[in-house]
């Protein structure tokens, strides 16, 4: 049975969501999948609500743009407002046609308190534990990679290292691992099907 995952990374321009999406696409490519990454260009990329969508599949991706994302990552209220509209059914499991939303606990206040919405402290962990707020995106990539359940941590970790600016390579890998482990407690409940 063929499969396809659509991951939408949304936030405010400058939060590194495009890099997060590039890392996931790079991991997909390394795993031998077909990938297509599209993103919103223009003034949004410089401070407005921006998004980058990654489609990952085991077959040719005809339509690169995702309709309903399998996973929606939002790191900013305005990104949630702009890109969570049209997300019909928020579900805790990766079922086709439904969306699991992953939001930053402190940066996104407008997301509903629902079973399919995971509110996680990406920025708080980056700031307080890793002493670098800017790596919140890679903490989120760790959580997302685990939630996707398609690739092992090594393959995504290599993608993080490959795509990071050299000065941030090590820190980004640490952040990625932290995000991956963040899902330890949540995962059995969060992902019940769809793998």
């Amino acid at each position: 049975m063929s499969w396809r995952l659509d991951v939408r990374c949304a936030g405010s321009g400058g939060q590194g969501l495009a890099l997060a999406a590039v890392v996931l696409a790079e991991a997909g490519l390394a795993a031998g999948c077909e990938v297509a990454l599209t993103q919103e260009y223009g003034p949004e990329a410089r401070g407005g609500a921006s998004r980058a969508d990654v489609a990952i599949s085991d077959e040719v991706i005809a339509n690169p743009q995702c309709g309903v994302p399998s996973i929606l990552l939002a790191l900013h209220d305005k990104a949630w407002r702009k890109f969570a509209t049209g997300v019909p059914a928020v579900s805790a499991s990766l079922e086709s046609g439904s969306t699991t939303a992953v939001v930053d606990r402190d940066l996104v206040a407008v997301a509903p308190d629902a079973p399919g919405v995971l509110a996680l402290p990406f920025e708080a962990v980056a700031r307080d534990e890793l002493r670098a707020k800017v790596v919140a995106n890679m903490v989120a990539v760790g959580a997302l990679g685990r939630l996707m359940g398609r690739f092992g941590s090594e393959i995504i970790e290599s993608a993080v290292a490959k795509r990071s600016p050299s000065a941030f390579s090590q820190l980004n890998v640490v952040a990625f691992r932290r995000g991956w482990s963040m899902m330890d407690d949540l995962l059995p409940a969060a992902v019940s099907a769809g793998r």
Partner: peptide
């Protein structure tokens, strides 16, 4: 078009 121009693929 712009989408193909900015899209990333393998």
């Amino acid at each position: 078009d712009e989408v193909i121009g900015h899209m990333r693929e393998g």
